[in-house]
């Protein structure tokens, strides 16, 4: 009897000791690697969190989050602060390079109405190509110096290209190529990974807290975030590209930003754009 009790006790102790190991896999579940299911779950999360919002309204970021802000946005749209940037981009786009060619020669459909297809996965290079990267590559291929990824010229060009694509639903493709799926996965991992001294991930603000205030700012939902790029931000008193948004997000949480258009940022843009597939391009946007 004593022996049996001892065995029972030992087994119970073993089971208790093994519990954390058994529990660990369910606490950090295996990743699914299923972009279609991811996008469905992503959009469901936000539409359930904000049941009054139509799906297409998410592209208006913080201005979709409450009535007061929505009114502000409607008034802003009377004289949109990004208008100058669109005009500048239009002129730049039309002006030929020194060799006589132009941006239109580098893009399908002459670069008009194609924003919704960027970023895309390039199977030759095996990497994600963003619109900003494609624009600078176009310049370099035509013996022009590349623009800064975070300054006004790049913002103007992308603003014009977004403007000609307004209303077209994001249509990001993940081809049947393990490298493309890996790039998507890397972007997803980057999005959810906490970094910086403040220990924030992109998701901390844009998944867990959209509509909440962080100091005076109302946080935008991650759904539709890329659709509005580039943006005029009152806080910046100027335009900002996707590159500018990513790098400043990193430094705001006290992380050292990577170089604009680093692989991580390209993959992040790929992931974030893919999960907003079906939502219309609204860029260029205006933000507080």
């Amino acid at each position: 009897m004593h022996v049996r009790s001892a065995i029972h006790f030992a087994l119970a102790a073993l089971a208790l000791a093994a519990l954390p190991f058994l529990a660990a896999p369910s606490a950090v579940a295996d990743d699914t690697s299923d972009p279609v299911a991811d996008a469905r779950a992503f959009q469901k999360y936000f539409t359930e969190k904000f049941p009054k919002l139509k799906l297409e309204d998410f592209v208006n970021g913080p201005y979709s989050m409450n009535e007061d802000m929505h009114r502000q946005w409607e008034e802003k749209e009377q004289f949109p602060p990004y208008e100058f940037s669109v005009e500048m981009g239009k002129e730049m786009f039309a002006k030929p390079f020194k060799n006589g060619k132009s941006y239109a020669d580098c893009f399908p459909n002459g670069g008009v109405g194609i924003r919704q297809n960027y970023p895309y996965f390039d199977d030759k290079e095996g990497k994600v190509i963003t619109l900003e990267l494609a624009l600078n590559r176009c310049r370099e291929a035509n013996d022009e110096a590349p623009f800064s990824y975070v300054k006004d010229e790049m913002a103007a060009l992308t603003a014009y290209m977004a403007f000609t694509s307004r209303g077209k639903p994001f249509d990001i493709k993940i081809p049947n190529d393990p490298r493309a799926l890996q790039a998507y996965q890397n972007g997803k991992r980057y999005f959810y990974t906490r970094r910086g001294q403040l220990n924030f991930s992109c998701a901390t603000c844009h998944v867990q807290s959209p509509g909440e205030r962080i100091r005076a700012e109302v946080l935008a939902p991650a759904l539709g975030l890329m659709n509005a790029m580039p943006i005029y931000r009152s806080e910046w008193s100027g335009m900002g590209t996707t590159s500018r948004r990513f790098t400043t997000c990193n430094s705001q949480i006290r992380g050292v930003p990577l170089d604009p258009q680093a692989d991580e940022y390209r993959d992040l843009e790929y992931y974030l754009s893919y999960v907003s597939n079906g939502l219309p391009i609204s860029g260029p946007g205006a933000r507080p």
């Binding site: 950090v28 991811d38 959810y192 906490r194 001294q197 998944v207």
Partner: peptide
């Protein structure tokens, strides 16, 4: 100390990021 904390963060986040994921 700060650099070591950032290393710890990067190492632990290699798996922990999945706990934040929308599924």
């Amino acid at each position: 100390a700060l650099a070591k904390a950032s290393i710890y963060q990067a190492t632990s986040e290699k798996e922990l990021w999945k706990t934040l994921e929308i599924r």
